[in-house]
Design a protein around this nucleic acid. Sequence first.
RNA 1: GGGGGAAUGUCCCGAGUGGCAAAGGGGGCGGACUGUAAAUCCGCUGGCUAGGCCUUCGUAGGUUCGAGUCCUACUUCCCCCA
Length: 417
Amino acid sequence: MSGFKSDFLRVLNERGFIHQISDPEGLDARCLKGPITAYVGYDATATSLHIGNLISATMLHWLQETGNRPIALMGGGTSMVGDPSFRDDQRKLLSVETINTNIEGIKKIFGKILRFGDGQLDGIMVNNADWLLKLNYVEFLRDVGRYFSVNRMLSFDSVKLRLDREQSLSFLEFNYMIMQGYDFVELNRRYDCILQMGGSDQWGNIINGVDLSHRMGGNQLYALTTPLLTTSSGAKMGKTANGAVWLNGDLFSPYEFWQYFRNTEDADVVRFLKIFTRLSLDEIARLGALGGSEINEAKKVLATEACAIVHGREAAEAAAETARKTFEEGAHSDDLPTIEIPRGDLEVGVGVLAAFVQAGLAASNGDARRSAQGGGLKVNDATVSDPKQTLSLADLTDDGVIKLSLGKKKHILLKPV
RNA sequence: GGGGGAAUGUCCCGAGUGGCAAAGGGGGCGGACUGUAAAUCCGCUGGCUAGGCCUUCGUAGGUUCGAGUCCUACUUCCCCCA
């Protein structure tokens, strides 16, 4: 499936976005005939999208960039049910308020990735609550439900895990794929949308929409999925100690985001540059050719470029500069994450362990104590050897702060107020 | 409706003769080696005013000097029969 003629599929293919396409030749031919409309759906499971969602959102970007129309679908309706795909337990039911709050958070990112407006090829943002919540049960069953075979639905890999583990799959969740299938058909009716994209875990759900359109005598629709991103050593992409790599700055700061990409494994640099930056393939090839420790330069470019897309160029440069000062000069930058501490506390003296807990670098005194025993705690770059040590005004550096470090990478500044 | 199983350290999986802060993995964190990489090796992975105390094995009671382990009821989930 390499010889795509259309700009859109060629770009996606070259940059490593394609895992499966339902009818590659057919879709390629359709893309050549003129602009197409395609969509990706996002459920309101959190107040922000995470790095995994960024991949499909980036596909929407390239879609628009190559002269087509993108739709970002907010799953206000489907989130009422919850996608059971590849999950071994039921999701918690979300309240309507939570769903709406989450959607507001999720929407933010699209302004940075797509161009919206009233023009022919401007992006569209819709919410499937607009049509799903209005459906009449029996009518829906007769119009749409009749086309779904339970036998077939049970055969999808996405629910196999659940069934094989003998965990219950509720009827509520079982309806999810029907709703998503219906979404696709509805978007085709409303906007002539012919392609749905998503992560590889969405294949079954997307194919259901393609089939439903057939059975209802509708248009030919297409499915396209991206590979599940894992690091070369096999870990799932986008997970850190504290959870997901969020796109919203209030959950995951630009500096943290920059650091996440800076720590990419060597073997993943080129792959990630293609997916998470908009650099030309020539430039990426050049960066990928750097050998040995020089590849660190490529990682910095990756971090800055990826960060710039999500947080803006300025924040990305600032994160890069903070990192440069911290790691290359061994100095500390005012831009490091900072925690305020009452001046009075320092006058009295604060236990080191408690200080690390306050800074969020340790979960408890015991946790901090253990880190200290392993030689992982530092105050102003000096290893903490005595857990009973206290911090006072005398520990302030010339810049009037105290730098706490956990390991080599995590630094927090304590600032008296 | 009847019968039989299951729930363990608040990340996950998973052992557990009545003496248990509870085996072992995975993951995570820290250290060494490096290049803020990978691989490898080592340490840690309930809380605290810290070698003493406190809270943990689905929930609530009970038996016992002592309960994750035994008894009763309840909850949730699986399987079989109707």
